[in-house]
Design a protein around this nucleic acid. Structure first.
Lengths: 258, 258
DNA sequence: CGCTGGCTTGATTCTATTCAATTTTCGTGG
DNA sequence: CCACGAAAATTGAATAGAATCAAGCCAGCG
């Protein structure tokens, strides 16, 4: 399944893990929330826009006139610090939403990481649609809950002190967002090293070194700079602090690098 | 206005900045979203619960049977790492919601920072109420957008490299969440130093030193450990990277400590 | 095939962590 | 109300890890 490829038919779509639907394992993967009917309704108010690689989609502070729904490609959502430094809040994949606003203005900026196709939904029309369709409202709630949890995970990643731990978590997050399918596949990293650095909150140099270390420890391999594969999932989870201490005989502290 | 005090009448309430309502300055402060009628409806399905200081409210992984709406006091929402380390996602004040779940289970844990009074809303009844009331659904959407922006700010805070910068931003966030009123007031910090450390992602020792430095630079003062006051707001904003470089003659890099 | 920009690597500097010792605060019971 | 003990907070010294700066390397692209 091509990650950046077109996976939508019949109009805008939203993908998320439902917060309430009690998860019998298979249900805790994200799935399409909207019915064909809803998607058709939204298609009526949407227009399709294309962005070239690295093209700006919107900027923080601009009047928020549209929200976007990714069809294909990858978008980065970011804030710019006064000193020019970028902080990336999220990488968005097909069937994600962006264009979060505050008091009528975009709360952050967005830029195409790859070539992007997206639906553009005028906020006024979208709000009208929301007020007419209670199911759609609920689905937006579900999606926002999903994004909120995702941002909490990101914040958790940022608290990791060691660069390798951050990258380990980053790899996991990217894997989960990409693989609706089985686990032991290749992870595609459409963004460059600086973008990864700005997402995990370290310098590009540290990203480079951390990838080198992960590979030296036989935890990951890479086919090229944009394709990595997890070899030792167990070790990765140790580093990423996602592992309940199962084996009784472990290092005293589980969350530190070797 | 007592920050931890009761500010609600007539049932559950939700406070947020509207993402869409174009902000003529005064409107970009958070305000009560629910009508008296909606609050009364919700009151019918809610029960009031009290928690003692430091009492556990719910734990990550438990079946999510209720969401909570703070009436008075302060709650911390957090995740626990395998090594016992805590990461705090948010401090919740009156008219905030908590109980975010994923696949039917709480996505994080919550604990009372002070003595807390809250409404407990069973999720089933709450969802029923949602499906009946389109306005309520919209208000929940608004609140979730608000919380998402807030979590993005938190993530941004965590990327700051210097401890003083983190604490500067932390002070700003706490001030904004507390003061519906005018600016130059005292900021109340109901949480202890470890909680602050777990929120800003540094060690308690670093929190202590950073507070000392901020005070040495005459940027803040403190009446006691839980009450600080901002003296030099300009310098604080410099440190917190929230300042567009207005004055043409500044240090080349705005976001570094002194 | 060469050029440009991104990536990697090395050496140094700097900051926060860690661990430990000390002081302060707060809750408890006398 | 005061005194005590325990927990929290502060402070100091040593260490470890990442940032920075700069130099070389590689890859993709014209």
């Amino acid at each position: 399944m091509p990650v950046g490829g077109s996976t939508q038919r019949g109009g805008p779509g939203i993908r998320a893990v439902d917060p309430w639907l009690l998860g019998n394992e298979s249900e805790s993967r994200s799935h399409q929330l909207l019915s064909d009917e809803e998607r058709a309704h939204l298609a009526a108010i949407a227009s399709i826009i294309r962005f070239k690689k690295h093209e700006q989609i919107y900027s923080e502070g601009e009047p928020a006139e549209a929200i976007f729904n990714v069809i294909s490609g990858v978008i980065k959502v970011y804030k710019t610090a006064p000193d020019g430094g970028e902080h990336i809040s999220a990488f968005l994949y097909p069937e994600d939403l962006c264009g979060l606003s505050e008091a009528g203005r975009y709360a952050n900026s967005a830029r195409a990481v790859t070539a992007v196709t997206a639906y553009s939904l005028p906020v006024s029309a979208f709000r009208r649609e929301l007020s007419k369709d209670a199911d759609l409202e609920l689905h937006v709630i579900v999606k926002l809950c999903h994004d909120l949890r995702e941002e909490q995970r990101h914040a958790f990643l940022l608290t990791q002190r060691h660069a390798v731990a951050k990258l380990a978590m980053f790899a996991q997050l990217q894997e989960r967002v990409q693989s609706a399918a089985v686990q032991p596949a290749e992870i595609y990293l459409p963004m460059n090293r600086s973008d990864i650095a700005d997402y995990v909150g370290i310098s590009p140099a540290a990203v480079s070194r951390a990838f080198r270390d992960l590979e030296a420890q036989r935890i990951i391999t890479h086919r090229d700079r944009r394709h990595i594969r997890i070899i030792d999932r167990e070790a990765l989870e140790d580093l990423a602090c996602n592992r309940a201490t199962k084996a009784p005989s472990r290092r005293s502290s589980d969350c530190r690098g070797p």
